[in-house]
Amino acid sequence: MTHILFTISTAFMLGLTGLTFHRTHLLSALLCLEGMMLSLFIALAMWSTQNDMMIFSSSPLLLLALSACEAGLGLSLLVATSRTHGSDHLQNLNLLQC
């Protein structure tokens, strides 16, 4: 495993661990998701430069566009939950459990 791939995998796994175990605020979950997507962005960019595949050099931007859409959707859901549930604590999302 190269150093670059190790660094990127560690960043991704840290983001995933944060999303899984740190469940206080919705905002921190969204930040962890965004960190995961950014590590994937760096991974794609490094892959296309390392392998000299210039035809893939536009793919990190495509990924960034879709992850920006996803972040926008997440923020709008953050606004919606804080309007309906009073705060952005994930503890409050318990209406549908049984």
């Binding site: 995933l16 979950a29 994937l40 859901l77 919606a80 309906t84 549930h85 549908l96």
Partner: peptide, 27 residues
């Protein structure tokens, strides 16, 4: 409130799953 909560839960799981899928394919 219930619809917003369902959408939030759906969004979080699907976004995390899609990120893991893309991570596996980049790997």
């Amino acid at each position: 409130p219930r619809a917003v909560e369902a959408a939030t839960k759906y969004f979080l799981t699907q976004a995390a799953a899609a990120a893991i899928l893309l991570f596996a394919s980049i790997y």
